[in-house]
Design a protein around this nucleic acid. Structure first.
Length: 890
RNA sequence: GCCCGGGUGGUGGAAUGGUAGACACAGAGGACUUAAAAUCCUUUGACUGAAAGGUCGUGCGGGUUCGAGUCCCGCCCCGGGCACCA
């Protein structure tokens, strides 16, 4: 046994013993409470783990280990989010198949997680691409389908006309395909959606029931984007209708007598008198009928504009500060409030995907409408004044929001406050039967179709008659066929569509049918894995409700804030559907959520050369450290950037453990900064953790000879005094503070308390003589046990090594977490601050619990206080027991 | 523009409205050593002072309070997310 921390001499040994003892197997014991701690499902990339990943896993491990020691049944699982575009693209690049590649990457992840001593129950592990897992992803798809929550409709995809393939949003950069550089087009194909919008309100409401960071909750609320307003119908003046359907591509197009009409949604019905034009999204189906009913000369311009809008990607179209563009349709709409004819334009700033795809434009009170009106020379009318009956000089130079203003130029509504007018005009719309008040959400249905190979197949058969049938449950899973070539095909369909053995099948009636060939996006697979962890190898069910009901909800879910919206919203949605189906007993999957900060690596960039044609604002081009060395110093600058293999700034756990030890790495990750703060990573920090651990090893080594494992029965607290009593007090204070700080995810102070405790013990060792003094030997034995136990969650290898040094068998993991005794943690002397007029003038020691009158009396007698009271009269004395006396005088 | 975080010594950071700077890192000085490493001790917010002490001090300006890093109002700066959402 060494008197210092030498990781190479014992860390691997303990990891092996843990494995042999199956230490981390999940157990359910009847009389214990449960704790479900989980990390975000990682995608196993070929780069392996960085210390950045470890910053997620280690803290979760710390709280799970403490919970085990505190007597909880703990579920602490890990699995792999293996399906998806990155895996598929990398496999294509490496000319291999994604399945074995992912398996190999996952094995590396597991090895690295084990290397840093994370207490996962690997018996429960799986990948989302395992057929035994995605069988049940398909099964849940069928539940959604049966409940009317999975449907298929035409929708736009990003189409690369050169590579002849569908692109994910992330493969489109500034409107061009990342690989081919071609201008991306929109193409309409049938796509699968989940109807998450049915749950919009519940997804907002139930945020109040979970213990999540407020910021994440707000991001979700904003994403769902509830707004209250009025939807009403606007008539097109004098337009005659051609032949058309009632609903086209999701747009309501109605024929009323001899004219056409369309619906708009507004949150500001109070401004309806200020509507001086209308705007339709270029994709709006009514445009066809307008073309038919207006001056044919305009047709060309309208169609050209529609084509222009089509070439813009969604991201591009929503780019900031774009100049407004649009085209006049030649048609006019009737403002229902005042009967005025107003022009109808097409403009891409109106989105087909939100509201009704058409707006009433009020340039006097909306920035976008104002910009558009200014450019196209349309009237701007003020209808809201900040002060009652006071209008701005015309023409208006900027739009006025004035949510608490008063109506002007609005007929009989003039002078009415905005809030009142919204109500009155809402009622007016309803009375007129042209519309109704409505709640609108920004949230859109969740598009899950991918025209890709490496995903979970959608278990649907298209029959000869064009109907859709679910694959019967006993035929699940629909397995991905093993093929050599799974690259995207040239026609936009999934590669699966070109595998006849896969496509051709029989429907439920035994007739020939064709399988659906789209696969599900990865977010589907990660929307229920926390349920499978409860019962991971069940061949007959997705999970046995007995287990899911026991473990759910996840008590503590830990991962990066980048998943604040999508993943967390989708998982919440599936859980709610499964609740409604009676398959789970919780409405929310994750009771508590914590987001770790990022780990940043020091990263070199090259300054752009003058002749380089770059996007505006590009300050530097990422280079490797090797390249940085070759360039002249003035051309290179360094920045902190998120660790990633492509940036060449990664520190791997292998390097860190090799040089400093697993426990040093773990403790440094905990100590370096608050859990949710970003960290600028410096390897040297780990060496100070090694020093700290060495001090503990030395202390245990020194006390070993006089260690008495039966201290608990032998200590007589009442007779303790001096340094021995101080040690015992520090022991119980440390237990109290460490336990509370791990619970509240304050891991940096967890480590500080241990350091402070170590300082106390080291100091005590110089004063106490445990060899001669029985009481000293006993309190130091208690301290040794306590230090080793409290160290366990953070530095488990060292903890077990020290535990065995003290002569014990087994693992600290199975020991009882120390409990503090309030009486023993309480100080018997307190230092009281004495202030005069709020300024500190003296500090005085008192026995703890001294009465206020005593504090006041002694404080007033203090010489230092007297000096500051000279020539003044005491007006008031504030006394905070055991803390402070503030004398107010003038 | 909106939403969410932040702004505290040379550095990372600590602080239920109650002694700002815990715990570390780095620095300085010292002990041990032939030397180095390791370890230990002292010291380290700024200004002032021989010292005792005093004054200032948590991005800026106000406010509430006996008392503000902490609460309120108005700004500035940094980071992240979302964004033409009618």
């Amino acid at each position: 046994m060494a008197d210092r921390y030498e990781p190479s001499s014992f860390e691997a040994k303990w990891r092996q013993r843990w494995e042999e003892a199956e230490l981390f197997s999940t157990r359910i014991e009847a009389d214990k409470p449960k704790f479900y701690g989980m990390d975000f499902f990682p995608y196993p990339s070929g780069a392996g783990l960085s210390v950045g990943h470890c910053r997620n896993f280690v803290p979760t491990d710390v709280i799970c280990r403490m919970k085990v020691m505190q007597g909880f049944n703990v579920l602490h699982p890990m699995g792999f989010d293996a399906f998806g575009l990155p895996a598929e693209n990398e496999a294509i690049k490496r000319k291999t198949h994604p399945a074995p590649m992912i398996e190999q990457y996952a094995a590396t992840y597991r090895r690295q997680m084990e290397l840093i001593g994370i207490s996962y129950d690997w018996d429960r592990s799986f990948s989302s691409s395992d057929p035994s897992y995605y069988k049940w992803t398909q099964w849940i798809f069928e539940i959604l389908f049966k409940r009317g929550l999975a449907y298929r409709r035409m929708a736009a995809v990003n189409w690369d006309p050169v590579d002849m393939t569908v692109l994910a949003d992330e493969e489109v950069i500034a409107g061009r395909a990342e690989r081919s550089g071609a201008l991306v087009e929109k193409k309409y194909i049938p796509q699968w959606f989940f109807k998450i919008t049915d749950y919009a309100q519940q997804l907002i409401d139930d945020l109040d029931t979970v213990d999540w960071p407020e910021g994440i909750k707000n991001q979700q609320r904003n994403w769902i984007g509830r707004s209250e307003g009025v939807q009403f119908t606007i008539q097109i003046a004098g337009g005659t209708a051609g032949e058309y359907d009632a609903a086209e591509n999701g747009f309501e197009v109605r024929r009323q007598e001899r004219s056409l009409s369309f619906d708009v949604f507004t949150t500001r019905i109070d401004t309806v008198f200020g509507m001086t034009f209308c705007v339709l999204a270029p994709e709006h189906a009514i445009v066809e009928h307008i073309i038919a009913s207006v001056d044919p000369e305009r047709e060309e311009a309208i169609k050209a504009y529609q084509l222009h809008a089509k070439t813009l990607s969604d991201t591009d179209r929503q780019a900031t500060n774009r100049e407004k563009t649009g085209v006049f349709t030649g048609a006019y709409a009737i403002n229902p409030a005042n009967g005025k004819r107003v022009p109808i334009y097409l403009a891409d700033y109106v989105l087909a995907t939100y509201g009704t795809g058409a707006i009433m434009a009020v340039p006097g009170h909306d920035q976008r409408d104002f910009d558009f009106a200014t450019k196209f020379g349309i009237d701007v009318i003020q209808v809201i004044a900040p002060v009652v009956h006071v209008t701005q000089p015309t023409p208006m130079t900027e739009p006025i929001e004035a949510k608490d203003g008063f109506l002007v130029n609005s007929g009989e509504y003039d002078g009415m406050p905005v809030a009142e007018a919204q109500k009155a005009l809402g009622e007016w719309v309803e009375a007129l039967d042209i519309g109704q008040r409505k709640i609108q959400y920004k949230l859109r249905d969740w598009l899950i179709s991918r025209q890709r190979y490496w995903g979970c197949p959608i278990p649907v058969i298209h029959t000869k008659d064009g109907e859709m049938q679910l694959v019967s449950a006993d035929c699940l899973p629909v397995e991905l066929p093993q093929v050599d070539n799974y690259e995207p095909t040239g026609d936009g369909t999934s590669p699966l569509a070109h595998i006849p053995d896969f496509v051709n099948t029989t429907d439920l009636d035994g007739r020939l049918g064709q399988r659906e060939t789209d696969t599900m996006g990865g977010f589907a697979c990660s929307s229920w894995y926390f349920l499978r962890f409860c019962d991971p190898h069940n061949p007959a069910e997705a999970w046995d409700p007995q287990f899911a009901n026991y473990w759910m909800p996840v008590d503590c879910y830990v991962g990066g804030a980048e998943h604040a919206v999508m993943h967390l919203l989708y998982a919440r949605f599936w859980t709610k559907v499964l609740f409604d189906e009676g398959l789970v007993n919780v409405r929310e999957p994750f009771q508590r959520l914590e987001n770790q900060g990022q780990v940043l690596g020091y990263t070199p960039y090259r300054r752009p050369r003058a002749d380089e044609n770059l996007d505006l604002g590009t300050e530097g081009i990422l280079i490797t450290p090797a390249e940085a060395k070759e360039l002249p110093e003035e051309d290179v600058f360094w920045r902190w950037a998120r660790m990633s293999k492509s940036k060449g700034n990664v520190v791997t756990p292998d390097e860190a453990v090799g040089e400093y030890g697993a426990d040093s790495l773990r403790m440094y990750l905990l100590f370096v900064a608050p859990f949710n703060a970003d960290v600028e990573w410096k390897n040297e920090g780990m060496s100070s953790m090694g020093k700290f651990l060495s001090r503990i090893f030395r202390f245990i080594d020194e006390i070993k000879a006089n260690y008495n494992p039966t201290w608990k029965d032998a200590i007589d607290f009442e007779t303790l005094e001096g340094a021995a009593k101080d040690v015992r007090r520090a022991t119980h204070q440390t237990i109290r503070d460490v336990s509370a700080d791990i619970e509240r995810f304050s891991f940096n102070t967890y480590v500080s308390w241990l350091m402070k405790y170590m300082n106390t013990l080291q100091d005590a060792m110089t004063k106490l003589k445990p060899a001669e003094d029985r009481a000293a030997a006993l309190v130091l034995s208690e301290a040794a046990d306590t230090m080793v136990m409290l160290l366990g969650p953070g530095a488990p290898h060292s903890s077990d090594e020290l535990w065995s040094t003290l002569g014990h068998d087994g693992f600290t993991f199975h020991q009882r977490w120390p409990r503090f005794v309030e009486k023993l943690a309480a100080a018997d002397v307190v230092t009281v601050a004495v202030q005069v007029n709020g300024k500190l003038r003296d500090t005085i020691d008192f026995p703890a619990g001294s009465p206020n009158s005593e504090l006041e009396k002694v404080a007033l007698e203090s010489k230092k206080v007297q000096t500051h009271l000279e020539g003044k009269t005491v007006r008031k004395v504030i006394v905070i027991p055991n803390k402070l006396v503030n004398i107010v005088a003038n």
